[in-house]
Computed example of a mutant assay.
Amino acid sequence: MQEYTISTDENHLDFDVIYGFLSESYWAAGIPKHTLAKAISNSFCFGVYDCHHSQVGFARLITDQATFAYLADVFIVENHRGKGLSKYLVESIVSHPELQGLRRMVLATRDAHGLYAQYGFQPIENPDVLMQIWHPDIYCESQV
C-alpha cells in the first residue's frame, strides 16, 4: 500500500469525490449536499488517497470514541478497486488508537459481509433487541 495513504485529517477530504460517489450509491442515492456536509462534519472520517493526493476512498464513523461506533459510507472508487484498499481501510479503522476499547461497532451492508468478517464483524446475535426509525425515501422527500 506504499502508493496509498489513509488520513483522518478532515482538511484533506474532497467533498466532490465523496458526494459524487455517495449520491449515486444504493444506500445514499440522492442525498442532498447539505445533508452529506453535515454528516461528514459530525463524523470521524477516513480518507484514502493515491500517490497524487487524490481521494480514492472514504469511510466515516458516527461515534463517541468511547463506547460505540457506527461505520458508514465506506467506498473505494471503481478504478482503484481490486488493490486491497478496502481491506487497508477497514484495518485502519478497526485498529485506530481513538477507536480502541469500544463496546460495540456496527455497520449495515448489502454485499460486503466477507470483507467485514475478516476484521471481526459478525451478524447481530439478537437482532430482536434492536429497533429503528427508518425513512428509506427521505432524500427523495427532502428535495420536494
Score class of each variant (00 low, 15 high):
residue 97 P to Y: 05
residue 85 L to Y: 02
residue 67 T to K: 03
residue 84 G to A: 07
residue 76 I to H: 04
residue 56 V to C: 07
residue 61 L to I: 09
residue 96 H to G: 13
residue 72 A to N: 14
residue 60 R to Y: 12
residue 66 A to K: 15
residue 86 S to H: 04
residue 103 R to T: 09
residue 83 K to E: 09
residue 69 A to V: 08
residue 95 S to W: 00
residue 62 I to Q: 13
residue 103 R to W: 01
residue 91 E to W: 12
residue 88 Y to E: 01
residue 89 L to H: 03
residue 76 I to V: 13
residue 60 R to F: 12
residue 70 Y to F: 14
residue 68 F to D: 03
residue 75 F to Y: 08
residue 93 I to Q: 03
residue 62 I to C: 10
residue 67 T to G: 00
residue 76 I to W: 05
residue 85 L to N: 06
residue 59 A to D: 08
residue 92 S to W: 00
residue 59 A to H: 07
residue 96 H to L: 09
residue 60 R to S: 08
residue 52 H to F: 14
residue 97 P to A: 11
residue 83 K to A: 14
residue 76 I to Y: 05
residue 95 S to G: 05
residue 62 I to E: 09
residue 86 S to F: 06
residue 70 Y to A: 15
residue 92 S to A: 14
residue 81 R to E: 10
residue 109 T to G: 09
residue 70 Y to D: 14
residue 54 S to D: 13
residue 48 V to D: 03
residue 110 R to P: 00
residue 103 R to D: 13
residue 67 T to N: 12
residue 97 P to K: 10
residue 77 V to Q: 06
residue 53 H to R: 13
residue 63 T to S: 15
residue 49 Y to N: 09
residue 92 S to V: 00
residue 74 V to I: 11
residue 88 Y to F: 15
residue 104 R to V: 12
residue 57 G to V: 11
residue 81 R to L: 05
residue 49 Y to L: 12
residue 109 T to H: 10
residue 52 H to K: 13
residue 48 V to A: 04
residue 74 V to T: 10
residue 62 I to L: 15
residue 89 L to F: 00
residue 74 V to M: 05
residue 85 L to I: 02
residue 73 D to C: 02
residue 77 V to D: 00
residue 104 R to W: 01
residue 72 A to R: 06
residue 64 D to T: 09
residue 72 A to C: 15
residue 53 H to Q: 15
residue 66 A to V: 10
residue 82 G to N: 05
residue 52 H to D: 11
residue 92 S to L: 02
residue 80 H to S: 02
residue 89 L to R: 03
residue 80 H to R: 04
residue 68 F to I: 14
residue 78 E to D: 07
residue 69 A to Y: 06
residue 89 L to P: 04
residue 95 S to H: 12
residue 79 N to C: 06
residue 50 D to P: 07
residue 106 V to R: 01
residue 70 Y to L: 14
residue 85 L to E: 07
residue 93 I to T: 03
residue 56 V to F: 01
residue 96 H to E: 10
residue 67 T to H: 12
residue 72 A to P: 06
residue 109 T to W: 13
residue 80 H to G: 03
residue 49 Y to S: 11
residue 54 S to Y: 08
residue 55 Q to P: 05
residue 68 F to C: 06
residue 76 I to P: 06
residue 105 M to Q: 13
residue 58 F to G: 05
residue 50 D to Q: 10
residue 76 I to R: 07
residue 60 R to K: 14
residue 97 P to W: 05
residue 54 S to W: 04
residue 110 R to M: 06
residue 86 S to K: 03
residue 49 Y to G: 07
residue 103 R to G: 09
residue 49 Y to C: 08
residue 108 A to G: 09
residue 58 F to T: 08
residue 107 L to Y: 12
residue 50 D to K: 12
residue 59 A to S: 15
residue 56 V to H: 02
residue 76 I to T: 06
residue 53 H to K: 14
residue 77 V to P: 02
residue 110 R to E: 10
residue 105 M to G: 12
residue 96 H to M: 07
residue 72 A to L: 11
residue 71 L to R: 02
residue 63 T to V: 07
residue 102 L to D: 03
residue 64 D to L: 12
residue 94 V to I: 12
residue 93 I to H: 07
residue 69 A to H: 10
residue 77 V to K: 10
residue 72 A to E: 15
residue 67 T to P: 00
residue 90 V to W: 01
residue 104 R to N: 04
residue 98 E to D: 14
residue 61 L to P: 02
residue 102 L to E: 01
residue 87 K to D: 15
residue 58 F to D: 02
residue 66 A to W: 06
residue 75 F to D: 02
residue 62 I to W: 02
residue 63 T to D: 11
